[in-house]
Amino acid sequence: MGERFYIGSNLAVIEMMMCLGMILKTFDIQKVDNQKAQMDVSIYLRMKHGLKLVLIEKSI
Rank of each mutant, 00 (worst) to 15 (best):
E3Q: 13
R4V: 11
R4K: 14
R4D: 07
F5V: 15
I7L: 08
S9R: 12
S9Y: 09
S9K: 12
N10C: 08
L11S: 03
A12D: 03
V13F: 05
I14H: 03
M16D: 02
M18I: 15
C19P: 00
L20P: 00
G21F: 05
G21C: 09
G21W: 01
M22Q: 08
I23G: 02
L24K: 03
L24W: 04
K25E: 08
K25S: 10
K25L: 09
T26W: 00
T26Y: 01
D28R: 12
D28K: 14
Q30C: 11
Q30I: 14
V32K: 05
D33M: 07
D33S: 12
D33K: 15
N34K: 15
N34I: 02
N34L: 08
Q38W: 02
M39W: 12
M39G: 03
D40F: 13
D40I: 01
S42P: 00
S42H: 10
I43D: 08
I43F: 13
I43W: 05
M47F: 14
K48W: 05
G50P: 06
L51E: 09
L51H: 03
K52G: 00
L53R: 04
V54C: 05
V54D: 03
V54K: 13
L55F: 15
L55K: 05
I56C: 04
E57P: 13
S59T: 10
I60E: 10
I60C: 07
